[in-house]
Nucleic acid binder design. Structure first.
Lengths: 201, 201
DNA sequence: GTCTATATAATGATAGAC
DNA sequence: GTCTATCATTATATAGAC
């Protein structure tokens, strides 16, 4: 069991920054707040990372690595790859909104992998065909990311205790139900859209 | 046709704040930036709103009203209520992430309305039954909000021009397709979750 | 209502001792 | 590697003239 104080100061600073940046946003988090949370001086933070921007980039790279590792372990379905540590998830959510290059890169990678995974599933019959595979993959990814980005809101309504895994399971189950049995019984609305776009847009 | 300069200074300041807060976040936006964007002095901003926090609350209330108005016009489905002006949507996305009281209130209202709307649909057969209506409504809302929060990412992958409405239509259509015809062909994964939770959790 | 000028605090970053 | 002390800049907010 590795305790917090066993980490190098650099790692502790990065972890503290990750948590604070994720919780409050980069702009709302001062270097001093990070240093206090890590139990070091403000000077040391800048000694290690050069600037606040450097610290942000270090967090970006760390999250990128963590998510890639998670994606490597899960063999396709995005839902499995997303059970990273909570601070990493929260940071990622904010980074996606801020449009950092790391988050943009990651989003692209995830969509590409998901599109390939869905195409595979289409071939062997696990996944229904689509008239617009790219749009479907993108939308699917956005949906899987939604409870992550809106985790506080979803958690509050579904359980009270945000750290409770029951919340995540309930949401995941409800989502799966919609995606297997469907939500709407007829394709009235769908037809309206098809007319507007053509079948293979 | 009402031009920008016809608005009172107070309204112009609020609109400018809405746009900048939504684009960059509240913390990353200075009162001076807002005043410059609105074409007034920094002092006037604080004269009208007391403080930066007061300005933020004014934006919150404005967005709350705008969304409620939109929801009143659309008679149930969340997707229709979300076609508010782009600045309002972007502001709302950030507010949801920041967990402002207005955004929290709004999220709760939306989920409640959606749950009622889904229950209605269940009764007259438009909507399939659910084993966990609350979780389904919450997840559905989170999904409909996802392209809003992740709009930049989705737009980039689906069209290039973020302001292009074709992007929104493609995403909406792909989503509808998944929610009508389903995505997964068998309920293998769903069964696994049902076992873990019991049927009526 | 609107501006300019200013007070005061906090922030990112640097320099140098240990 | 780590700290303290300090600088220059920028931020919010106030006071008072017009």
């Amino acid at each position: 069991m590795r305790s917090v104080s066993d980490l190098t100061a650099r790692a502790r600073i990065r972890d503290a920054a990750l948590a604070l940046f994720g919780a409050d946003g980069v702009a709302a988090t001062s270097v001093r707040a990070v240093s206090a949370s890590a139990g070091v001086s403000a000077g040391l933070v800048l000694h290690h990372f050069g600037s606040k921007e450097g610290l942000r980039q270090a967090c970006d790279e760390y999250v990128l690595d963590a998510m890639r590792e998670g994606a490597r372990l899960a063999d396709g379905d995005l839902a499995d790859a997303l059970d990273a540590a909570a601070p990493v998830r929260r940071y990622l959510a904010r980074a996606l909104l801020d449009g950092t290059t790391a988050a943009t890169t990651l989003f692209d990678e995830i969509v590409a992998r998901t599109e390939a995974w869905l195409a595979d599933g289409e071939r062997d019959g696990r996944i229904r065909p689509s008239s617009d595979p790219r749009a479907r993959a993108t939308t699917y990814v956005a949906w899987m990311l939604a409870p992550l980005v809106l985790g506080d809101q979803v958690g509050r309504l579904l359980g009270g205790d945000p750290a409770d895994s029951v919340v995540a399971v309930r949401a995941a189950r409800a989502g799966l139900e919609m995606l297997t049995r469907g939500l709407f019984t007829d394709d009235r609305w769908l037809s309206a859209y098809s007319g507007a776009l053509g079948e293979n847009r």
